[in-house]
Simulated scan of single mutants.
Amino acid sequence: MNAKHAEGPPVTEQDLTLVIAARLRARLRQEAGALDKLAEAAGVPADRLEAIVNGQRAPSIDVLWKIANALNVPFGSLIAPAPRRGAAVIRKSDANVLTSSGGAFRSRALTVFGEAPRVEIYELTVAAGHREHSLAHAPGTSEDILVVKGELEIVAGREPAYRLGPGDAIHFDADVPHAYCALGAEEVIAHLVLAYGPRD
C-alpha cells in the first residue's frame, strides 16, 4: 500500500501490537544490524521500525506489508499469536484489526495463523468514497474477494476496473499493484481470501 500512509495511531490495541513486536524481534535478533537492513529493504525509516519492534507504535497495514515483503514471509505470520492445536474461535470483540489511511481502510483477521500460512482470510471495511492502494504482494499471491455490503471497485495491474455489488466475487493476481475503492454513499464490507504461491 502506498508510502504516503503513516503507521497507525499510538498504541491502543496493545495485544496485537505486542504480538507483531515479538514476532519481529524474534526475526531480527539473529543478526547484528538487522533492524537497519530491514528498514532499508522495507523502505521504512529506522526509527519508525524500531518503535514498532519495541511495541511502542502500531503499524498500519501498508507498513506491515512492506515489512512482510522485505522479510519474504506471509503477512499473517507477523500478526500470529503462538500456534495452537485443535479448534480456535475468533470472537468479534477480540479480533485482530489493522487500519490504514486514518481508519478509512480496516482489515480484520478471520484466520488463526501459523508461522507459514498458505491462505489467510480477512474482513475488509472500506469507508465510503475511499480508495486504498496496495503494493504488489509476493510473486504468486492471489486474492479472492466477496462483497457483503456496498459497491466495491477493484483495479489490479493493467486490468480494467471491476465494479462489484453485494454477493459479487472476484479472483485476481495480487502480485501486481492493486486498489480497492468504495463507490457510492455507504461503506463497503467484503471478505478477502489471500492465497500465497510457492515460496523460496
Rank of each mutant, 00 (worst) to 15 (best):
A3G: 10
A3T: 10
K4W: 12
E7R: 07
T12S: 11
E13V: 12
E13P: 08
T17H: 05
I20W: 00
A21T: 06
A21N: 01
R25Y: 05
A26G: 09
R27G: 08
R27K: 13
L35P: 01
A41S: 11
G43R: 00
D47G: 10
R48L: 13
E50S: 15
I52T: 06
V53Y: 02
N54V: 04
G55S: 07
R57N: 07
A58D: 04
P59W: 02
W65F: 14
N69S: 13
A70K: 01
V73A: 01
P74Y: 00
G76L: 01
G86N: 06
A87L: 14
L98W: 04
L98Q: 03
A104C: 10
S107D: 06
A109L: 04
L110S: 08
L110M: 15
V112Y: 15
V112K: 09
A116Y: 06
I121A: 13
A127T: 11
G129V: 03
G129L: 02
R131T: 15
G140R: 09
D144S: 14
L146Y: 07
V148M: 07
V148W: 00
L152F: 05
P160C: 09
P160S: 10
A161M: 06
L164P: 03
G165I: 02
P166C: 12
G167N: 08
D168F: 11
D173Q: 14
H178D: 07
A182F: 04
E186R: 10
E186K: 08
H191N: 11
A195P: 03
R199H: 15
